[in-house]
Design a protein around this nucleic acid. Structure first.
Lengths: 209, 209
DNA sequence: GAATAAATCCCCCATTAAGGGGGAGCCCCG
DNA sequence: CGGGGCTCCCCCTTAATGGGGGATTTATTC
């Protein structure tokens, strides 16, 4: 035997897409579609019986959204993996899906080959994202390269964002308390703010830290 | 004509791997290996002439590491894309590569097919990660599901981590200053800390926020 | 060579925030 | 009925913050 059967459940309100997925997966060796549902509510009622290894989930479902469904599925079946397959590629939805516990995110232009490949990757203990999703995720890690803040100022603002106070920052950087204070004054002037919270917010909005 | 030629430069110290990549890419229609280098220093000297669309970069180079080389390459050629191809898959290295400006990260067990696919994905305006890298990245977004903190406490600690003070948090949550203070006392007790900075650090280390 | 930015340090000042102590009422769930 | 969660109240001292005004030195740039 090559590998155990992968038990898959599909949650998708569009019948054509749902049956398309069922057909696509059903014909593949080692993969089995246990059940399909058109709403998250229906799926959640039956999932414990179905006991799937992987749930393919749309986000644009009527009633409970796929995003809301993720933590509920995860609490019912903690070891079940979730692959989001959807047309929605807004940054907000993608990040909420991933923080809520999804192991993969494909946008719907993904080919049949890509979908099967993602399922394989996820089942082999990894995760998977389509190229446009990966781009958003990677971009979220990157800094603005045209920061108005100097290197030292950026460094100090990062420490402030960790909740450290001036004295601690000064000690760690081997500089005087007053020097840290001066840097903070300059940071506030450059960002046009007057408090820690505003500086942190502004800096994060502009990817300065 | 299908598409313009993609100009690729390879930076890799292992000759066998370097020539393997060169052969793999060179035989593909639409892709051209302009040059290969065994160190980042050599590559950086010549990159402006080579003017590549994409640089395949190892991280474990002698001398300047691939990680350090990324921002230097990006400042020389801002529109050149960088694909990391390496055996190193430690969390720290991966995140440093992505924050420094890499558009993709493949670990070296990636097949020839996967490598070409990644190059195509990146060139088509996206990004790419191998499954194990994607897993680390996604995991970094997710919370610990066994938090000792209550929902309210987590929420308040998140606001503290944004640099907000008790009064502002109280106003935003429509509760009293003293209530916020009580929550903070309970947070500190649960995390066994005695300051904002320690609470934030402990919470982040344990993915509570 | 002068101007500029960055990084360092030094005073003044008043106000606010933080942390620790103790206590208490209400609600819900098991 | 007990405990966790959420809410609010009082006491207290110390630490931190934000704004004002400087100064010096070292690089780098024009």
């Amino acid at each position: 035997m090559e590998e155990a059967n992968v038990r898959i459940v599909i949650v998708e309100d569009d019948k054509v897409i749902r049956e398309g997925y069922r057909f696509l997966i059903g014909e593949k060796q080692g993969y089995q579609v246990i059940n399909t549902y058109s709403t998250a509510e229906q799926a959640i009622k039956k999932l414990s019986e179905d006991n799937p290894d992987l749930v393919m989930l749309d986000v644009g479902l009527p009633g409970m959204s796929g995003i809301e469904a993720i933590p509920k599925i995860k609490s019912l079946l903690p070891h079940t993996l979730i692959l989001i397959c959807t047309v929605h590629d807004s940054e907000d939805i993608i990040f909420r899906a991933l923080t809520n516990g999804a192991s993969g995110y494909l946008t719907k232009n993904s080919s049949a080959v890509k979908i099967m490949e993602s399922i394989r990757e996820i089942m082999q203990g990894g995760a998977s994202m389509s190229a446009n999703v990966a781009q958003l995720v990677i971009r979220s890690f990157q800094r603005n390269s045209h920061s108005p803040l100097s290197r030292r100022e950026t460094q100090i603002l990062e420490e402030i964002a960790k909740g450290k106070n001036r004295r601690v920052i000064a000690d760690e950087l081997f500089i005087d308390n007053e020097t840290v204070k001066s840097h903070i004054k300059n940071i506030y002037a450059k960002l046009n703010v007057h408090s820690k919270a505003d500086a942190i917010r502004t800096a994060k909005e502009n990817k300065l830290i």
